[in-house]
Amino acid sequence: MTKPIARTTNSDTPKKDDISHRLYEDVLALLLSTMVVSLGVTLYSESVLVTGSTAGAALLIEHATGFSFGVIFFVINLPFYWLAYKRMGTAFTIKTFVAVGLVSIFSKLTPMMVDFTMLNPVYAAVAGGALMGIGLLMLFRHRAGLGGINILALYLQEHFGIRAGYVQLAIDMVILIIAFLTLPFDKVLLSILGAVVLNLIIAINHRPGRYLAAR
């Protein structure tokens, strides 16, 4: 007499539904993550520092021209949405568009609600980089980004297994080298420190196969 074969399940292997987020979870994540990023951007703006990606380019333009970071950041990201739609899907593109819009708004409102009478530039570099890294990590885990280089970094991770943090770090170094032409030497060094903090957070915590940016 043969014994019935017991069905076994691997509880360590997540099902597709196990990693899906509900709508309210995505909404909360988009709001909280963009608020965190905007606070980090405010620390950088107040200390005349820059970061990488399109946010870094927007900060450079703000420091050079005096135009609002929020407006520059929103406009500079517009060309990247087509790549996001073609490569990452409709849901990712919509969430990213909303996230960029929220950062543009929050970065304008945050200085009106927070006043820095004394801000150590070293603290601003480390804390600002950490805040932006944490905010980006939240966005990545909810299949969103902040446009620009984030889209390229996530695409390379999803399709080639290259960690998004390392791609971001390499491109950010190029942007920060350009910053030497417009900012004092010590400000650029502190900006590099912040970029390292930001991208280490992403590289350590966001690995291929754990959270997917697009279905």
Rank of each mutant, 00 (worst) to 15 (best):
M88E: 12
P184H: 02
L39F: 14
M113E: 04
L49C: 09
L169S: 11
L30N: 06
R210W: 03
H63R: 11
K187Y: 05
I162P: 01
P208N: 07
M35V: 14
I61K: 13
A99C: 01
M138W: 05
D18S: 12
L39A: 13
L176V: 11
L43A: 02
F67L: 15
G145D: 07
L60R: 09
L190M: 13
K187P: 07
I72T: 15
L83E: 05
F106I: 03
I178Q: 06
I201R: 01
T9D: 01
M173A: 14
A6R: 07
D172L: 08
S104T: 04
L181R: 13
M1S: 08
I192N: 01
E25G: 03
L193P: 04
T65P: 13
V167G: 01
G194P: 05
V188Q: 06
A91Q: 14
E62S: 15
L28V: 10
R210I: 12
L156K: 02
L189Q: 06
A153K: 04
I204V: 09
R215T: 08
L137D: 05
E46L: 12
H63A: 13
L146S: 00
R163Q: 08
I192L: 14
R163E: 05
L146H: 02
Y85M: 04
Y166C: 09
G101E: 00
I171H: 06
K187T: 09
P184K: 12
R163I: 08
G40P: 06
R7C: 00
S38L: 02
E46V: 15
F69G: 13
M112S: 11
P121S: 10
L190I: 13
R163F: 00
V174M: 11
K108T: 15
F97H: 01
L137G: 03
V75D: 09
A124D: 11
V167Q: 02
Q168F: 11
S107A: 15
L102A: 02
I5T: 13
F140H: 03
A91R: 14
S107H: 09
F180C: 14
A214I: 01
G135W: 00
Y123E: 01
F180M: 13
A55N: 12
G40T: 09
S191V: 08
